[in-house]
Structure formats: C-alpha cells, structure tokens
Computed example of a mutant assay.
Amino acid sequence: MRKPELASAIAEQTELTREKASEVITAFTDQISAAAARGEDVSLIGFGTFGVRSREARSGRNPQTGAAIQIPASRSVGFKAGKSLKDAIR
C-alpha cells in the first residue's frame, strides 16, 4: 500500500477528504522523523515502536575485490512491532 492508497482508506474510515488525510499522514511521518533526529523513540501502544539504532564501526570486505575495508559507525531507524500488530498478522 502506498501513501495515496493509505490516504484514501483513512479518508473513508474517518470521513475526511483524501487531501486532508494525506496532510495528516505527512504530519505523522514528519513528527516521527523529527523525533528520530532528536534520538527519541516513538511508541504507539499496541502498534509498535520506532527507535534509533546505532551500529558500531566494523571491518568488512569489498565483495568485488575481496579487499578489507573499514565500515564507519552509523545510525538508522528501526521498528519493533507491538503485540496487537503481531497478533493481526498471525
């Protein structure tokens, strides 16, 4: 499901216009992005938690040449599903 399809489904369920539902989705994702940039977790009880994950620097290999390379430390966003979401997909 892509954003326009999600906006349409939300619009039907909430009696909002598709445009307003799309604005709500954009505001929601903007707030999650802003919280992640601050290093904060976003927990939606029953649905799941978006959190920042850190990876340490490590060594690896270039798959084309086999040469050893140093992979720098990085941060990314992860998602851990909540109980209700897990139960919904079983």
Rank of each mutant, 00 (worst) to 15 (best):
D30W: 08
M1R: 12
E40T: 09
D41G: 05
L44Y: 07
E5M: 13
T17P: 02
R2W: 09
E56S: 12
S74C: 06
I10G: 09
A73I: 05
S54K: 14
I32Q: 02
D30N: 11
A57T: 10
F79K: 13
R18W: 01
A37T: 01
L16S: 09
I69G: 02
A68C: 07
I32P: 00
F47K: 00
E19H: 07
S8E: 15
A73D: 08
R55P: 01
I10Y: 05
A11T: 03
S8H: 12
I25D: 03
N62Y: 10
I89Q: 13
A11R: 00
F28H: 11
A81L: 15
K80A: 13
T17Q: 04
E40W: 03
G78Y: 01
F50Q: 03
L6P: 00
G39Q: 05
V42Y: 02
E56P: 08
R2L: 15
S22G: 13
L85G: 00
G66R: 04
P4I: 11
G60H: 13
E12T: 07
V24Y: 00
L6Q: 08
R53W: 13
S84M: 12
I25H: 04
A9E: 15
G48I: 05
A88G: 11
S8W: 02
S8I: 07
F79L: 14
K80S: 12
I25E: 02
P63D: 06
A27S: 15
L16T: 06
G66M: 04
G78V: 05
R61M: 05
V42G: 08
G82H: 10
K3C: 10
A73K: 08
D87S: 11
S54L: 09
N62H: 11
E19R: 12
A36I: 08
A35M: 01
R75W: 00
A27I: 02
Q13Y: 04
E5S: 12
L85T: 04
G46P: 05
A88R: 14
R55W: 06
T49C: 12
A57N: 08
D41E: 09
